[in-house]
């Protein structure tokens, strides 16, 4: 298992390098000139040349790319923001905590609501509850966050004045952004859990368990649950990675200084170091989440764990099986 994890981590290196090259190339080729954006109208050619040299944008593509990769790999240096002059890595590490706290809470809410709803909908198929939860999931996935967020702000912030409208100054500030962030995930997870559970409870081993006279709760929670969880883990993992990448809309609307707003500002101003650094960080998180998801597969499914076992362990288990025979 350890070997597999190390192998997966090593695989992440060329993936991240590929992302770095692609993102750098895309930003390089995108129309618009950061020097002109900074200087505005009516600059002289001398000023342009001076600013371009200052930002290292006077060199060719390969020289810029090479220097960028070298700085990232050897010094973990993503450069400084053209606009604020603050090192990108400083901003990324500061903002990551904010985005992570919201993403983490959102995923907890998503799991706590989405999975039970999905299970209840599956085991009570075609009941009022099933229709209720399925409709709820459909509504949640149909309403985009940029619609629901202002509505919630008006209702709970302006009219009822129960919850703060912006920032993350107190615990109550987390409620609306976390809820808005979680809504899409709840919808996705409810539907995914329902489908997966329905598939699982129709399998032979569940029928056998029922025939043995096991209680329904034992069948569901002990026997069906683990198999149901495999696709659910995949969805949850990718959802968390997406949230960590910066829930742009939520951060913008609730004025939260996270990764999403940072990337948004970078794109608006053609601030290449911010764009590159944010995308690479997001790619890194996605890679890590994919590794975590693979490990979780092994935890919930012994068949997958057996595939990952090392040769020695396999031999031992075969020998033990022979001896037992």
């Amino acid at each position: 298992m350890a070997k597999y994890i190390i192998k997966r981590i090593l695989w992440a290196i060329p993936v991240l390098l590929g992302v770095l090259i692609i993102v750098f190339t895309i930003t390089y080729l995108t129309p618009g000139d950061p020097v002109q954006t900074i200087l505005g109208n009516g600059y002289t050619p001398e000023k342009y040349a001076k600013k371009a040299a200052e930002l290292g944008l006077d060199k060719g593509y390969l020289a810029q790319l090479g220097s960028y990769i070298w700085n990232v790999v050897t010094r973990f240096d993503f450069g400084k923001s053209y606009m604020t002059n603050i090192p990108v890595i400083t901003e990324l590490t500061t903002r990551m905590g904010t985005t992570f706290s919201i993403a983490f809470l959102s995923i907890i809410v998503t799991i706590l609501i989405g999975i039970p709803c999905g299970i209840i909908a599956a085991i009570k198929q075609y009941s009022a509850l099933d229709y209720g939860f399925t409709s709820f999931a459909l509504i949640c996935s149909a309403i985009p966050s940029f619609v629901i967020a202002p509505v919630l702000l008006v209702v709970f912030g302006v009219k009822l004045r129960w919850l703060p409208l912006s920032g993350l100054d107190e615990w109550k500030s987390y409620i609306l952004p976390v809820f808005v962030n979680a809504l899409g995930g709840i919808a996705l997870l409810t539907r995914m859990t329902r489908t997966s559970m329905l598939e699982t409870i129709r399998q032979d081993y569940i029928r056998t368990a029922r025939a043995k006279g096991l209680r329904e709760s034992v069948i569901i929670w002990k026997h069906a649950m683990k198999n149901t969880m495999i696709p659910v883990i995949t969805v949850t993992g990718s959802w968390l990675a997406m949230l960590m990448g910066g829930a742009l809309i939520v951060e913008l609307i609730f004025s939260i200084p996270g990764l999403g707003t940072y990337l948004y500002g970078g794109i608006s101003n053609r601030d290449y170091p911010i764009i590159n650094g944010s995308v690479i960080l997001t790619a890194f998180i996605v890679c890590m989440m994919s590794i975590v998801v693979d490990i979780l597969y092994a935890v919930v499914d012994p068949r997958i764990k057996a595939q990952f076992s090392s040769g020695k362990k396999k031999k031992k288990s075969v020998q033990a099986a022979k001896e037992a025979a």
Binding site: G157, V158, S255, Y264
Partner: peptide, 15 residues
Amino acid sequence: KYYKDTSTMEMDLEA
């Protein structure tokens, strides 16, 4: 207090 989205800012004034 900084707001990226001005409509949130206006709602905060109203509140």
